[in-house]
Design a binder for these strands. Structure first.
Lengths: 159, 159
DNA sequence: GCCACCTTACTCGGATAAGGACTGTCCGAGTCGCTAAGG
DNA sequence: CCTTAGCGACTCGGACAGTCCTTATCCGAGTAAGGTGGC
């Protein structure tokens, strides 16, 4: 099980965008995080498609959060990048082989699939409980309130 | 995020092995589940390396559970197949770029990494709470106690 | 009748190819701001 | 001085290769059972 590196990039970008007042182009985001500009652009497109950020085109265009940071959960971002398919996919092994399960037995999902689905639900619930605003607050607390002002200043100066 | 199909195979194999008294060769397991024999063998090797099942070599050899099914958790099996590395890997983006975090800020893990780690811990806790014996009990209940006796009979007849 | 040895066939185990997904890149379409000319 | 048309440059968006991991496979080393010959 492995998450795309784009998830980390996207979450950091959301934190940055939460401090922006004007659209931030992808080139600026890539410079700030020291990552590939074109590949980051690919992931930003995914965030736009998910409706989490809005894109402003043309000169002085860029990205802005589409909703209040408190209403964007980490799960939203992860889902936008990784997709919404469950990590565990039941292939209904029980219905194959020499002793297949009867259709009557399959009214409920396979016990193994249920166990995996329960765990994934716990994972999703945990991610859903944390918003981008929470992340911003954590960063502010971890850095004794120094990072966010400097970030806002950098966004202004580079504009 | 995507789990290997081998996880599903391995869990089903553990349920089958819990009903076996004599070693079950991988060919028999593959036939029962209607999956690739050689690929399943690869995953069974992982279970052996993890100490979950024991391998008997030579003629009439095969696999048996190494511990009581009640003491093998779903997390054990998933970890044996998928490895124990976390799905989310923090690349310390905060320390890169024009506004790098100071070493003092990095005493705690990145807020984003903490959020992802918390979610993964919830996932792991959920999987750890379910044992192979629980799965066997669920299967028995789902099929009104018909599957396990037939499974044991199939294992005997094919031996 | 019992024991030791050999053959045999079966098992696991690791080393070896093919497919798909993540990673990384490029170029084109569209749009907004700036400039400059005209009224 | 104001309006408007044109230009230019910058933006996003989707289409295109490279690399790693998952999937799938094969063959060899090792081992225990069963049969056979000898004692």
């Amino acid at each position: 099980m492995k998450l795309s590196a784009g998830v980390e990039w996207a979450l950091h970008c959301c934190v940055v965008l939460s401090q922006a007042t004007d659209p931030v182009p992808v080139g600026r985001l890539a410079t700030f995080h020291d990552v590939s500009k074109t590949y980051l652009a690919k992931h930003m497109q995914a965030l736009v498609r998910a409706g989490l950020v809005s894109a402003a085109e043309g000169r002085d265009g860029g990205y802005l959060l589409a909703r209040d940071p408190a209403h964007i959960t980490v799960l939203d971002v992860v889902g936008a990048i990784e997709g919404h398919e469950p990590a565990f996919r039941c292939t209904e092994i029980r219905q194959r082989g020499p002793l297949p399960a009867t259709p009557g037995d399959c009214e409920r999902a396979c016990a193994i699939a249920r166990a995996m689905a329960t765990a994934e639900a716990a994972w999703r619930t945990s991610l859903e409980a944390i918003s981008v605003a929470d992340l911003v607050g954590d960063v502010d607390r971890d850095t004794s309130g120094q990072t966010l002002p400097r970030l806002r200043g950098w966004l202004r100066d580079s504009g």
